[in-house]
Design a protein around this nucleic acid. Sequence first.
DNA 1: CTATACTCGGACACAATGAGTCCGAGTGGC
DNA 2: GCCACTCGGACTCATTGTGTCCGAGTATAG
Lengths: 160, 160
Amino acid sequence: MKMSGGVEWALHCCVVLTASHTPVPAAKLAELHDVSSSYLAKQLQALARAGLIHSVQGKSGGYVLTRAPESITLLDVVRAVDGPGPTFVCTEIRQRGPFATPADACTTPCPVARAMWAAEDAWRQALAAVTIADLAGDVDATSGPEALVGIQAWLTGGAS
Amino acid sequence: MKMSGGVEWALHCCVVLTASHTPVPAAKLAELHDVSSSYLAKQLQALARAGLIHSVQGKSGGYVLTRAPESITLLDVVRAVDGPGPTFVCTEIRQRGPFATPADACTTPCPVARAMWAAEDAWRQALAAVTIADLAGDVDATSGPEALVGIQAWLTGGAS
DNA sequence: CTATACTCGGACACAATGAGTCCGAGTGGC
DNA sequence: GCCACTCGGACTCATTGTGTCCGAGTATAG
């Protein structure tokens, strides 16, 4: 089991978008992170489809966060990029084979699925407890506040 | 992100193996669950490689649990089948692009990776809190104790 | 008002990992 | 000593993730 690598890109982009209140084109985000702009576009489209960022077209268009960074959780981003479905899928293996449990007796999910889903819920809860604003704050604390303002200047300015 | 379907098979096999103290061949486990025996063999091999079950060859060979069911956690099984690596991999995106953080300043993992790994730890902790014995107990409670003893009889007996 | 340049958006190939199958090596029973 | 039965690893196919491309749409400049 390996998580889609695009999740990392999307999270970093969300943190960067915190610094700019004007639309930022995808090409600029790609250059900033030194990744393929074509592929990054796909992740941003997923974020836009989920309503986390808003896309504006035209000459000075780009992407902007729709909500305040404090109200965007990591779970929102992960669900948008990686898909909302559960990682563990129960194929109802107990209803097959010579000792199959009759279908009408399966009122509750099988114990295996229950345990796995409980663990997934713990994971989601941990993700939902962290917001993009928290991450931006951590970046400020570790790299210094001048990092984000420098990036902001570079984003708004046209310099390459 | 989707978990390998073999995890479900492996977990059910471990629960079934709880009922038998004599070696159970892979073919029988496959028939019991109505799944491909060739593919199930791969999962059992992974469990054996991790030391969770022991394989005995020969005419009346098969697989047996090495430890007591109370000391085998779901995390052990998941790690054995699905791989021990972390689901989120940090590609150190902060060290790339025009605003790259210098490598010597990266003493601590980047905040994004920290948050993701913390969520993974919560997931692992939830998995480590449940044992195979707990699952077997749940099966007893829901399907009745007669289910497992019937399976045990079918496993040891040669009937198809 | 029109032309233009720049943006996003979805449709299109390629690669890697998981799913599934097969046959050979080894071992205990008869 | 033979045999039947078991596991173990090597091989092939399908699905999903990775990466790329070009067309539709819009705010801007003239």
